[in-house]
Amino acid sequence: MIDWSQMKTAEQIAEEERRARVPAEISRAQGRAILGSMKLIPQVEAYFASITDEEEAMWVDLAWNHTSTWRRYESPFLTRAAQALGLTDQQLDEMFIAAAQIVI
């Protein structure tokens, strides 16, 4: 008997396969290294400087300067920052894949 409720669309399968290739997290150092190698640090810092909300600025400071890891899928900060930089999900995934290869 086939359980039709367990069936997935081609899009769902593709999304699962994409997520399986992308590291769930990278170190903050790896993240900053990949941003530096892509020459995105000035844009990141400009985005941070544009934040006027004190609470959001606090979260930015924590994520940029004080966390040990950056999580790809559970970080509202990372999602907002990527959007502000004009990065697509695919570009962010590729950055995480490349960053995971950096040994510091």
Score class of each variant (00 low, 15 high):
A99V: 00
L35A: 09
Y47F: 15
T9N: 02
G31R: 03
N65L: 10
M58K: 15
W59Q: 01
D3C: 07
S75A: 04
W59I: 07
T67M: 11
V103I: 12
M95E: 05
P76W: 07
E56V: 11
D61E: 14
G36C: 03
F77C: 02
L35V: 05
Q12T: 06
T79M: 09
A14L: 10
D3V: 10
N65V: 00
W64H: 04
M7K: 13
E74L: 00
V44D: 02
G36F: 05
Y73V: 12
A10K: 12
I34D: 01
P76C: 06
T88F: 03
T52S: 14
E54Y: 05
R21E: 15
E55I: 14
A49M: 05
Y47A: 03
R71P: 04
A99R: 03
W4I: 15
W59L: 09
E74W: 03
E54C: 06
A10Y: 05
I13W: 01
V60S: 11
Y47D: 07
T88V: 00
W70E: 07
I51R: 02
L87Q: 08
F48T: 00
L87G: 07
Q6R: 06
Y73T: 14
R28A: 13
G36P: 01
A81P: 01
Q83T: 10
R71I: 10
S37C: 10
Y47P: 01
P23K: 06
V44P: 02
S75W: 07
E54H: 05
E94S: 08
P76D: 12
F48G: 06
Q6A: 09
S27P: 07
I51M: 08
T52L: 12
M7I: 15
K8E: 10
S27G: 03
Q90H: 11
L35S: 04
I13C: 01
A57S: 14
Q91R: 10
R21L: 13
E11P: 06
E17I: 04
K8M: 10
E45I: 08
A24T: 12
I97A: 03
I51L: 15
E56R: 14
Y73M: 11
W70Y: 04
L87A: 08
K39F: 08
A98N: 04
R18D: 08
I51C: 00
L85I: 05
W64F: 09
P23Q: 08
A57W: 09
W64Q: 07
A82T: 00
L62K: 14
W64N: 00
S75F: 08
A14V: 06
R72P: 00
K8S: 09
A29C: 04
L92V: 14
Y73I: 08
I26Q: 06
A29L: 12
T52N: 13
F96T: 05
A98E: 10
F48S: 02
M58R: 15
F77D: 01
F48L: 12
A24H: 11
T69K: 15
S37Q: 15
M38P: 05
H66Y: 10
D61Q: 10
Q101E: 12
I26H: 02
Q91E: 14
A84S: 12
Q91N: 07
V44M: 06
A20M: 05
V44I: 09
E94P: 03
R71K: 13
Q43L: 10
D61V: 05
M38N: 15
